[in-house]
Design a binder for these strands. Structure first.
Lengths: 284, 284
DNA sequence: CGCACTTTTGAACAGAATCAAGTTTTGTGG
DNA sequence: CCACAAAACTTGATTCTGTTCAAAAGTGCG
């Protein structure tokens, strides 16, 4: 349930130099970013060094996983320089033609669906190394909005090029299929969660999932800061924000968690996991 | 929400001759089926004629969508003769190595996850033309059980061969990606449903989804027989079977539906849809 | 420093789960 | 083909969980 999609051991967090933290509008993809790269020479040299897949610390986690020298170089030509996004920026919107997938280089994004009545429903949270936009391939257009929850960088992967290249590089093809498949499996986990768990269990599962994903990226598995509001968590977990808040308090009262606003400290990881094992609603 | 994955117009239902309705154990894939084909000559000739993708009425709905003569012939060589399954038979189980994907030729299957505590959760229902097993690609093994809810036939698609062939045939590659993507999009729809709808709305959405899928296959959009129990519906929708039963009664009392056990007659399709538009829990 | 947003907490309420019969359908063996 | 047992379904009463409404406290950003 809500399984960790990445079994890759701790790769160190990326220490990218951040060039343009503000006001990057979603406009025409990539272009602005490239222009800036030309304008700011000294910073760029370092940035460019690391900006390609081959120099990226994430290449065990992200799309290029399993590719070696030559193939990696091919992928490099395909993926544009990381595009900076400021907090609140929209990467893409539902209904827009799907041209590219996006890999999160740094930062934290959400994808959400706007109901007809104006309410939004969060479909997922995305962190470093995760690929966004795959749900829109079938329709040829994006089905959800993607918004940065903190200043972030994303790598644009033109989908037509990705398909072409994955015909030439079996390892890339195979890994791309695994990525899509894992998203399906992950969603099944969320469906299970939404269909069978109580509020407290849902929140526990959510935190454990975050914990695992942070661990896979070399961060602490017990201490991290939430990047989303209680309302966004609730929307994702099918709960109201008040219920999320109460669930936090309950987990804290049980001594499993220390919550200081968005700062989470998991005090009893196995206790949290045990909470979900009790999911036996039916006696023998 | 719970969008129809198929926008293909009505292809006629398949009228396959059914050879072995009983006791086909999941054992070693394909072999038994082929042996039988040799044993029963007169029936087989017809069966074999239609058994390949090129002769299959589903080729606009299933994996071969968009392929023409030569490419279709290539796919034919890849896909084995349809394997018969009796009601209750298991096609594959969670944990087993993923060797093949399966396309439903005729019949109706469910996929479900067995909780650690013994309770099962239905992850999806699958009808003619739909491809099963894609959630297991990422892990290299199946993550759910697949069980026939009525006598069915499935076409086995060896996954390694599919990857190889889709490197050679861009149209096949592209379509396979669309199939996976649509499963992601569909799951997002279910997540939305589970997270934001009340029991009655969930059932309405479920029935509308079934209706659309039957329509796409050339069947009536308003009259059909459910192949699953109330408990299985409930498991899929995150409800208890009693709640499903009550929701059926409520929809019937409102004049939207006529329910006679498993026989469903949608009396007011637009009324059902309208029910879900009222999903405004928040006033402006 | 103040205003807006987020979060917490409480009380009343609503919807679904649970428990409990009772009925209908289905499938099987005689 | 019928009878009977098992499974599936319906309906009611009660309980419990989460929502809604409301208010107050905390946080952070301009």
């Amino acid at each position: 349930m809500l399984s960790t999609d990445e079994s890759i051991p701790g790769t160190a967090p990326v220490g990218l130099i951040y060039v343009n933290p503000h006001a990057q509008t979603p406009g025409s993809p990539g272009a602005v970013c490239l222009d800036m790269a030309v304008a700011l020479a000294p910073v760029i040299s370092i940035r460019e060094l690391r900006s390609h897949c081959s120099g990226c610390n994430l290449h065990e986690l992200c799309l290029p996983a399993g590719l070696d020298g030559t193939d990696l170089a091919e992928l490099d030509r395909l993926v544009a320089l990381p595009r900076p996004l400021a907090r609140g920026d929209t990467l893409f919107r539902a209904g827009f033609e799907l041209v590219s997938l996006y890999a999160v280089r740094t930062g934290f994004l959400k994808s959400s669906v706007l109901h007809d009545d104006g309410r939004e429903q969060v479909a997922g949270f995305h962190m470093t190394g995760e690929v966004m936009g795959m749900d829109g391939i079938g329709a040829g257009k994006h089905l959800c909005d993607a918004v940065a929850l903190e200043d972030s960088e994303v790598c644009e992967i033109p989908f037509a090029d990705l398909e072409r290249l994955s015909r030439e590089i079996p390892a890339l093809q195979s890994h791309f299929h695994r990525l899509m498949s894992r998203e399906i499996a992950h969603d099944h986990g969320v469906m299970l969660l939404l269909g069978s768990m109580r509020a407290e269990e849902r929140l526990a599962a959510f935190l454990l999932n975050l914990s695992q994903r942070y661990t896979a990226r070399g961060y602490s598995s017990t201490q991290f800061n939430l990047r989303m509001t209680r309302e966004e968590i609730g929307s994702y977990l099918g709960l109201k924000l008040e219920t999320v808040s109460r669930a936090f308090s309950q987990l804290q009262d049980k001594g499993l968690l220390a919550v200081r606003n968005k700062a989470i400290d998991i005090l009893d990881l196995s206790g949290l996991k045990a909470l979900m094992g009790q999911n036996c609603h039916t006696p023998p």
